[in-house]
């Protein structure tokens, strides 16, 4: 299924969870926060949060800013 991750289309297996997406992207274990369709997904729900086709995922981290 196709999902949008940080504005870019990605093809992932059906029912991929947020945790699995992070593994696919080689980002597991990093300090980051995730939104799906503009709703925050707490880290504790990464394993259970299954993605649906055309979901919009945002993966963010802290960078330099003032």
């Amino acid at each position: 299924m196709e999902i949008l991750v940080n504005g870019t289309p990605h093809l992932v297996p059906t029912d991929t969870t947020v945790a699995q997406l992070l593994v696919i992207l080689e980002m597991q274990g990093k300090r980051l926060a995730v939104e799906v369709n503009q709703e925050l997904v707490p880290r504790s729900q990464f394993d259970s949060a299954a993605l649906s086709p055309h979901d919009t995922v945002e993966i963010v981290h802290a960078i330099g800013g003032g």
Partner: peptide, 9 residues
């Protein structure tokens, strides 16, 4: 202070 931005995938 820090900013919150998209990670580079």
């Amino acid at each position: 202070t820090v900013a919150i931005r998209r990670t580079n995938i």
